[in-house]
């Protein structure tokens, strides 16, 4: 118990493509010494039941995230642009599906 644990193993974010044709999706994180080990561990931790056909690992420090405090500034301007959605437009019924 006096030995340091994973102190020097950086954190990695794991992304898994569940099947060919779909995007990689974030599924969690883990500690590993390097990228190759992170991939190995990601396989064991996140894909024990064929949950994936491809894995990405990214050092967590390499991710730049938007600040939740800026949420209003970033995302609210889109709220009043309802003309960006198809439902904004009224089309006569006889036209059918469009």
């Amino acid at each position: 118990m006096n030995t340091p644990a994973l102190k020097d193993w950086p954190l990695w974010e794991v992304f898994v493509r569940s099947k060919q044709g779909l995007e990689h999706k974030h599924c969690g994180s883990l500690h590993a010494a390097d990228a190759a080990q992170a991939l190995h561990m990601a396989r064991d931790v996140y894909t024990r039941r064929q949950e994936g056909v491809s894995i990405w690992v990214v050092p967590s420090v390499a991710i730049t995230a938007s600040n939740p405090d800026d949420k209003g500034e970033l995302f609210d301007p889109a709220a009043d642009k309802i003309y960006r959605h198809p439902t904004f437009y009224e089309i006569p019924e006889e036209v059918g599906h469009m």
Partner: peptide, 27 residues
């Protein structure tokens, strides 16, 4: 048993997002 080890790892990662560290938890 391997699944249970995996469960532990998912959960440690989730706890780390709150600002605690793996070392602190293992300690």
């Amino acid at each position: 048993v391997q699944d249970e080890g995996g469960h532990g790892l998912y959960l440690y990662s989730a706890a780390e997002t709150l600002g605690t560290s793996r070392e602190q938890m293992l300690e």
